[in-house]
Amino acid sequence: MCERADPGDTMSTPLFVVQLFNGLQLGVLLFLVAAGLTLVFGVMDFINLAHGVQYMLGAYLAVTFYRLTGSFFASVLLALPASMVFGLALEVAIFRHLYERDHLEQVLATFGVILFLNQGVKIVWGAAPLNMPIPDILSGSIPLMEGLRYPVYRFAIIAAGLAVAVALYVFVTATRVGMLVRAGATNAPMVSALGVDIKRLFMIVFGFGAMLAGFAGAMVAPILSVEPGMGDQILILAFVVIVIGGIGSIRGAFIAALLVGVIDTLGRSFMTDMLRLVLAPSTARVIGPALASMTIYLLMAIVLAVRPAGLFPAKGRA
Protein backbone atom coordinates (compact mmCIF):
# COMPACT_ATOMS: atom_id res chain seq x y z
CA MET A 1 0.00 0.00 0.00
CA CYS A 2 1.46 3.32 -0.87
CA GLU A 3 0.65 6.47 1.01
CA ARG A 4 0.32 9.55 -1.09
CA ALA A 5 2.72 12.18 0.18
CA ASP A 6 2.03 14.87 -2.38
CA PRO A 7 -0.71 17.09 -0.98
CA GLY A 8 -0.83 19.21 -4.16
CA ASP A 9 -4.10 18.02 -5.65
CA THR A 10 -5.86 17.51 -2.32
CA MET A 11 -5.39 21.18 -1.51
CA SER A 12 -6.36 22.62 -4.89
CA THR A 13 -8.14 25.96 -5.25
CA PRO A 14 -11.53 24.54 -6.34
CA LEU A 15 -11.51 22.22 -3.34
CA PHE A 16 -10.71 25.15 -1.10
CA VAL A 17 -13.61 27.16 -2.57
CA VAL A 18 -15.99 24.23 -2.09
CA GLN A 19 -14.88 23.85 1.50
CA LEU A 20 -15.37 27.58 2.08
CA PHE A 21 -18.96 27.23 0.89
CA ASN A 22 -19.42 24.22 3.14
CA GLY A 23 -18.05 26.24 6.05
CA LEU A 24 -20.31 29.14 5.20
CA GLN A 25 -23.34 26.87 5.10
CA LEU A 26 -22.52 25.37 8.50
CA GLY A 27 -21.90 28.88 9.82
CA VAL A 28 -25.26 30.14 8.62
CA LEU A 29 -27.07 27.23 10.27
CA LEU A 30 -25.16 27.82 13.47
CA PHE A 31 -26.14 31.46 13.34
CA LEU A 32 -29.85 30.62 13.11
CA VAL A 33 -29.59 28.47 16.21
CA ALA A 34 -27.19 30.74 18.07
CA ALA A 35 -29.18 33.94 17.43
CA GLY A 36 -32.05 32.78 19.62
CA LEU A 37 -29.70 31.31 22.18
CA THR A 38 -27.64 34.46 22.57
CA LEU A 39 -30.73 36.66 22.93
CA VAL A 40 -32.29 34.40 25.53
CA PHE A 41 -29.02 34.17 27.41
CA GLY A 42 -28.22 37.85 26.96
CA VAL A 43 -31.62 39.37 27.61
CA MET A 44 -33.00 37.01 30.21
CA ASP A 45 -29.75 35.69 31.67
CA PHE A 46 -31.31 32.28 31.18
CA ILE A 47 -29.27 29.23 30.12
CA ASN A 48 -31.52 27.22 27.85
CA LEU A 49 -29.93 23.86 27.04
CA ALA A 50 -33.22 22.84 25.45
CA HIS A 51 -32.65 25.27 22.59
CA GLY A 52 -31.24 22.42 20.45
CA VAL A 53 -34.52 20.61 20.94
CA GLN A 54 -36.27 23.50 19.19
CA TYR A 55 -34.06 22.85 16.18
CA MET A 56 -35.02 19.17 16.23
CA LEU A 57 -38.70 20.01 16.59
CA GLY A 58 -38.47 22.39 13.63
CA ALA A 59 -37.21 19.52 11.50
CA TYR A 60 -39.88 17.10 12.71
CA LEU A 61 -42.63 19.66 12.21
CA ALA A 62 -41.42 20.36 8.69
CA VAL A 63 -41.45 16.64 7.85
CA THR A 64 -44.93 16.29 9.31
CA PHE A 65 -46.27 19.25 7.36
CA TYR A 66 -44.55 17.93 4.26
CA ARG A 67 -46.43 14.65 4.64
CA LEU A 68 -49.67 16.57 4.99
CA THR A 69 -49.21 19.13 2.24
CA GLY A 70 -46.67 17.57 -0.14
CA SER A 71 -45.07 20.97 -0.61
CA PHE A 72 -41.66 21.89 0.75
CA PHE A 73 -42.32 25.61 0.90
CA ALA A 74 -45.68 25.23 2.59
CA SER A 75 -44.18 22.87 5.14
CA VAL A 76 -41.36 25.28 6.01
CA LEU A 77 -43.81 28.18 6.26
CA LEU A 78 -46.10 26.13 8.52
CA ALA A 79 -43.18 24.88 10.61
CA LEU A 80 -42.22 28.46 11.54
CA PRO A 81 -45.37 29.43 13.49
CA ALA A 82 -45.66 25.88 14.84
CA SER A 83 -42.10 26.08 16.22
CA MET A 84 -42.89 29.44 17.74
CA VAL A 85 -46.06 28.16 19.38
CA PHE A 86 -44.17 25.21 20.76
CA GLY A 87 -41.43 27.46 22.09
CA LEU A 88 -43.98 29.73 23.74
CA ALA A 89 -45.75 26.75 25.27
CA LEU A 90 -42.47 25.59 26.79
CA GLU A 91 -41.81 29.12 28.01
CA VAL A 92 -45.16 29.39 29.74
CA ALA A 93 -45.18 25.86 31.13
CA ILE A 94 -41.58 25.51 32.29
CA PHE A 95 -38.98 28.13 31.54
CA ARG A 96 -40.89 31.08 32.98
CA HIS A 97 -40.56 29.55 36.43
CA LEU A 98 -36.79 29.31 36.12
CA TYR A 99 -35.78 32.89 35.32
CA GLU A 100 -35.29 33.79 38.97
CA ARG A 101 -33.37 30.63 39.77
CA ASP A 102 -29.61 30.29 39.53
CA HIS A 103 -27.83 28.95 36.48
CA LEU A 104 -27.27 25.46 37.84
CA GLU A 105 -30.96 24.91 38.36
CA GLN A 106 -31.69 26.24 34.88
CA VAL A 107 -29.15 23.85 33.41
CA LEU A 108 -30.66 20.91 35.29
CA ALA A 109 -34.24 21.75 34.38
CA THR A 110 -33.58 22.45 30.71
CA PHE A 111 -31.46 19.32 30.45
CA GLY A 112 -34.48 17.45 31.74
CA VAL A 113 -36.51 19.04 28.96
CA ILE A 114 -34.00 17.69 26.42
CA LEU A 115 -34.38 14.14 27.74
CA PHE A 116 -38.13 14.45 27.90
CA LEU A 117 -38.57 15.83 24.40
CA ASN A 118 -36.04 13.49 22.76
CA GLN A 119 -38.02 10.60 24.18
CA GLY A 120 -41.32 12.28 23.37
CA VAL A 121 -40.32 12.73 19.73
CA LYS A 122 -39.49 9.04 19.59
CA ILE A 123 -42.91 8.11 20.94
CA VAL A 124 -44.71 10.34 18.45
CA TRP A 125 -42.59 9.85 15.30
CA GLY A 126 -40.65 6.65 16.08
CA ALA A 127 -36.91 6.10 16.55
CA ALA A 128 -36.10 5.57 12.88
CA PRO A 129 -34.71 8.58 11.02
CA LEU A 130 -37.20 10.40 8.81
CA ASN A 131 -36.71 11.75 5.36
CA MET A 132 -37.78 14.85 3.46
CA PRO A 133 -36.96 15.35 -0.23
CA ILE A 134 -35.33 18.45 -1.67
CA PRO A 135 -37.93 20.54 -3.57
CA ASP A 136 -37.66 20.16 -7.35
CA ILE A 137 -36.94 23.82 -7.96
CA LEU A 138 -33.84 23.61 -5.74
CA SER A 139 -32.77 20.10 -6.64
CA GLY A 140 -30.21 21.08 -9.29
CA SER A 141 -26.50 21.27 -8.75
CA ILE A 142 -23.55 23.33 -9.86
CA PRO A 143 -20.25 21.70 -10.85
CA LEU A 144 -17.97 23.77 -8.65
CA MET A 145 -15.05 21.38 -9.05
CA GLU A 146 -14.29 18.37 -11.18
CA GLY A 147 -16.32 15.36 -10.15
CA LEU A 148 -18.38 17.15 -7.53
CA ARG A 149 -21.83 18.59 -7.97
CA TYR A 150 -22.56 21.24 -5.39
CA PRO A 151 -26.29 21.05 -4.59
CA VAL A 152 -28.19 24.26 -5.27
CA TYR A 153 -30.09 23.51 -2.09
CA ARG A 154 -26.99 24.21 -0.03
CA PHE A 155 -26.71 27.62 -1.68
CA ALA A 156 -30.37 28.14 -0.81
CA ILE A 157 -29.56 27.48 2.84
CA ILE A 158 -26.74 30.02 2.73
CA ALA A 159 -28.99 32.59 1.04
CA ALA A 160 -31.88 32.02 3.45
CA GLY A 161 -29.55 32.28 6.43
CA LEU A 162 -27.98 35.51 5.19
CA ALA A 163 -31.43 36.96 4.49
CA VAL A 164 -32.52 36.15 8.03
CA ALA A 165 -29.34 37.73 9.36
CA VAL A 166 -30.05 40.97 7.49
CA ALA A 167 -33.70 40.98 8.57
CA LEU A 168 -32.68 40.35 12.15
CA TYR A 169 -30.12 43.14 12.01
CA VAL A 170 -32.73 45.59 10.77
CA PHE A 171 -35.20 44.35 13.36
CA VAL A 172 -32.79 44.73 16.26
CA THR A 173 -31.31 48.06 15.21
CA ALA A 174 -34.32 49.85 13.70
CA THR A 175 -37.49 48.77 15.51
CA ARG A 176 -38.85 49.61 18.91
CA VAL A 177 -38.94 45.98 20.07
CA GLY A 178 -35.39 45.61 18.80
CA MET A 179 -34.35 48.58 20.84
CA LEU A 180 -35.92 47.03 23.95
CA VAL A 181 -34.15 43.79 23.21
CA ARG A 182 -30.83 45.60 23.03
CA ALA A 183 -31.63 47.49 26.17
CA GLY A 184 -32.62 44.25 27.87
CA ALA A 185 -29.34 42.63 26.91
CA THR A 186 -27.48 45.53 28.51
CA ASN A 187 -29.51 45.97 31.68
CA ALA A 188 -32.77 44.07 32.04
CA PRO A 189 -33.75 45.35 35.54
CA MET A 190 -33.43 48.94 34.33
CA VAL A 191 -35.66 48.27 31.33
CA SER A 192 -38.22 46.79 33.68
CA ALA A 193 -37.93 49.75 36.04
CA LEU A 194 -38.68 52.09 33.14
CA GLY A 195 -42.11 50.54 32.82
CA VAL A 196 -41.59 48.05 30.02
CA ASP A 197 -43.50 44.80 30.38
CA ILE A 198 -40.38 42.67 30.64
CA LYS A 199 -42.37 39.45 30.80
CA ARG A 200 -43.90 40.16 27.43
CA LEU A 201 -40.52 41.13 26.02
CA PHE A 202 -39.08 37.87 27.28
CA MET A 203 -41.90 35.95 25.63
CA ILE A 204 -41.32 37.70 22.32
CA VAL A 205 -37.60 37.01 22.46
CA PHE A 206 -38.16 33.43 23.43
CA GLY A 207 -40.77 32.71 20.76
CA PHE A 208 -38.60 34.36 18.17
CA GLY A 209 -35.53 32.36 19.18
CA ALA A 210 -37.51 29.14 19.05
CA MET A 211 -38.76 30.05 15.60
CA LEU A 212 -35.26 30.73 14.26
CA ALA A 213 -33.98 27.42 15.61
CA GLY A 214 -37.04 25.71 14.14
CA PHE A 215 -36.31 27.39 10.80
CA ALA A 216 -32.75 26.01 10.87
CA GLY A 217 -34.14 22.54 11.60
CA ALA A 218 -36.67 22.77 8.78
CA MET A 219 -33.99 23.91 6.34
CA VAL A 220 -31.63 21.01 7.10
CA ALA A 221 -34.37 18.37 7.00
CA PRO A 222 -33.78 17.62 3.28
CA ILE A 223 -30.00 17.18 3.64
CA LEU A 224 -29.75 15.60 7.09
CA SER A 225 -31.79 12.78 8.51
CA VAL A 226 -34.42 13.89 10.98
CA GLU A 227 -33.95 11.85 14.14
CA PRO A 228 -34.27 12.09 17.92
CA GLY A 229 -31.32 13.88 19.51
CA MET A 230 -30.29 15.68 16.30
CA GLY A 231 -30.28 18.99 18.18
CA ASP A 232 -27.86 17.96 20.89
CA GLN A 233 -24.74 18.31 18.77
CA ILE A 234 -25.55 21.64 17.22
CA LEU A 235 -26.37 23.02 20.67
CA ILE A 236 -22.78 22.60 21.83
CA LEU A 237 -21.50 24.39 18.74
CA ALA A 238 -24.09 27.13 19.25
CA PHE A 239 -22.82 27.71 22.76
CA VAL A 240 -19.28 27.96 21.44
CA VAL A 241 -20.56 30.52 18.93
CA ILE A 242 -22.27 32.75 21.47
CA VAL A 243 -19.31 32.63 23.83
CA ILE A 244 -16.93 33.62 21.04
CA GLY A 245 -19.31 36.26 19.68
CA GLY A 246 -20.16 37.81 23.02
CA ILE A 247 -23.31 36.91 24.90
CA GLY A 248 -26.37 38.91 23.88
CA SER A 249 -24.88 40.21 20.65
CA ILE A 250 -26.54 39.31 17.35
CA ARG A 251 -23.65 40.79 15.39
CA GLY A 252 -21.20 38.77 17.50
CA ALA A 253 -23.22 35.61 16.96
CA PHE A 254 -23.20 36.18 13.22
CA ILE A 255 -19.46 36.75 12.90
CA ALA A 256 -18.63 33.96 15.34
CA ALA A 257 -20.98 31.50 13.61
CA LEU A 258 -19.34 32.07 10.24
CA LEU A 259 -15.90 31.88 11.87
CA VAL A 260 -16.71 28.61 13.62
CA GLY A 261 -18.34 27.12 10.53
CA VAL A 262 -15.44 27.95 8.24
CA ILE A 263 -12.67 27.04 10.68
CA ASP A 264 -14.32 23.75 11.63
CA THR A 265 -14.84 22.76 8.00
CA LEU A 266 -11.38 23.79 6.83
CA GLY A 267 -9.84 22.04 9.84
CA ARG A 268 -11.68 18.84 9.04
CA SER A 269 -10.66 18.92 5.42
CA PHE A 270 -7.08 20.13 5.49
CA MET A 271 -5.66 19.41 8.95
CA THR A 272 -4.44 15.91 8.10
CA ASP A 273 -2.89 17.07 4.84
CA MET A 274 -1.16 19.99 6.53
CA LEU A 275 0.24 17.76 9.25
CA ARG A 276 1.50 15.43 6.54
CA LEU A 277 3.88 18.14 5.43
CA VAL A 278 5.71 17.94 8.76
CA LEU A 279 4.83 14.48 10.13
CA ALA A 280 4.88 10.89 8.88
CA PRO A 281 1.61 10.08 7.02
CA SER A 282 0.47 7.48 9.57
CA THR A 283 1.10 9.84 12.50
CA ALA A 284 -0.68 12.67 10.67
CA ARG A 285 -3.64 10.36 10.12
CA VAL A 286 -3.95 9.71 13.85
CA ILE A 287 -3.38 13.26 15.05
CA GLY A 288 -5.19 15.06 12.21
CA PRO A 289 -8.81 14.12 13.01
CA ALA A 290 -8.25 14.65 16.74
CA LEU A 291 -6.74 18.08 16.20
CA ALA A 292 -9.39 19.00 13.61
CA SER A 293 -12.21 18.42 16.06
CA MET A 294 -10.37 20.61 18.59
CA THR A 295 -9.81 23.67 16.40
CA ILE A 296 -12.99 25.54 17.30
CA TYR A 297 -12.43 24.95 21.01
CA LEU A 298 -8.89 26.24 20.63
CA LEU A 299 -10.35 29.28 18.90
CA MET A 300 -12.74 29.75 21.80
CA ALA A 301 -9.92 29.46 24.33
CA ILE A 302 -7.84 32.04 22.47
CA VAL A 303 -10.75 34.47 22.12
CA LEU A 304 -11.59 34.12 25.82
CA ALA A 305 -7.96 34.70 26.78
CA VAL A 306 -7.72 37.87 24.70
CA ARG A 307 -11.28 39.18 25.05
CA PRO A 308 -12.99 37.50 28.02
CA ALA A 309 -16.40 38.95 27.11
CA GLY A 310 -16.26 37.68 23.52
CA LEU A 311 -15.59 39.46 20.25
CA PHE A 312 -18.60 41.80 20.30
CA PRO A 313 -19.97 41.96 23.84
CA ALA A 314 -23.35 43.64 24.28
CA LYS A 315 -22.70 47.18 25.45
CA GLY A 316 -22.45 47.52 29.20
CA ARG A 317 -21.92 43.82 29.85
CA ALA A 318 -18.18 43.71 29.25
Partner: peptide
Amino acid sequence: IADEVYTPLGQLDFAAELARIAA
Protein backbone atom coordinates in the same frame (compact mmCIF):
# COMPACT_ATOMS: atom_id res chain seq x y z
CA ILE B 1 -5.38 3.97 -0.46
CA ALA B 2 -6.15 7.47 -1.76
CA ASP B 3 -6.97 8.58 1.74
CA GLU B 4 -8.30 7.24 4.99
CA VAL B 5 -10.54 9.71 6.76
CA TYR B 6 -11.95 9.47 10.27
CA THR B 7 -14.84 11.75 11.24
CA PRO B 8 -16.09 12.51 14.76
CA LEU B 9 -18.66 9.99 15.94
CA GLY B 10 -22.14 11.43 15.38
CA GLN B 11 -21.17 13.82 12.57
CA LEU B 12 -24.16 14.40 10.31
CA ASP B 13 -22.96 16.70 7.54
CA PHE B 14 -20.33 15.18 5.28
CA ALA B 15 -20.02 17.98 2.74
CA ALA B 16 -16.35 18.55 3.61
CA GLU B 17 -15.47 14.87 3.27
CA LEU B 18 -17.40 14.50 0.01
CA ALA B 19 -15.37 17.33 -1.52
CA ARG B 20 -12.19 15.51 -0.51
CA ILE B 21 -13.43 12.31 -2.16
CA ALA B 22 -14.12 14.21 -5.37
CA ALA B 23 -10.64 15.72 -5.23
